[in-house]
């Protein structure tokens, strides 16, 4: 067990550990962080890790990177219970849960093809955010996104 544990949570010197990600959403977290094949830093991803509180969870560790507010907001939309651990010199310098914003702008594409926010007009998409479960309501056309939110992230 200890060897297994060491493999999963090998400490990092500097960077961010995103813990308690909703099981199955780790790949979407990487997408939000625009981490693709050519990324230069060490990235560790664990999926379906047993968790007392959640049953199962995903974990993403990124070395030498701290996240921007917009990235945190996007993660909160797909995994509202995720926690962020900022690691500096092997120590947890800060730890907090992502917080769902009340409104998101320019982060999500409306599902309604006939919405004014999906035209050539100079308008940024805006959604009101509701909790438990996460629901996004377009302020322009009032359509609601409840499922597969990750697919609609810009």
């Amino acid at each position: 067990m200890s060897a297994e544990k060491e493999l999963r949570v090998r400490p990092i010197r500097n960077g961010t550990v995103i813990d308690r990600i909703l099981a199955g959403q780790a790949m979407n977290v990487l997408k939000i962080l625009r981490i693709k094949g050519a990324y230069s830093e060490v990235v560790t991803m664990a999926m379906n890790v047993p968790s007392k509180a959640l049953g199962q969870k995903d974990i993403v560790k990124i070395e030498n990177r701290e996240l921007e507010e917009k990235e945190l907001d996007k993660i909160s939309l797909i995994s509202p219970g995720a926690t962020i651990n900022i690691i500096r010199d092997f120590e947890v310098a800060d730890k907090y849960q992502v917080e769902l914003p009340e409104m998101v702008e320019g982060m999500v594409k409306c599902i309604n093809p006939n919405c004014i926010s999906n035209t050539k007009e100079p308008v940024t998409s805006k959604f009101e955010v509701k909790k438990d479960p996460v629901q996004l309501r377009c302020i322009y056309c009032e359509n609601i996104i409840m499922e597969n939110i990750a697919e609609h992230l810009l």
């Binding site: 004014i116 926010s117 007009e121």
Partner: peptide
């Protein structure tokens, strides 16, 4: 009157 949903709200902006 405009065919896109939300166009009136955008116009108000």
């Amino acid at each position: 009157r405009h065919p896109s949903e939300g166009s009136a709200l955008m116009a108000a902006e």
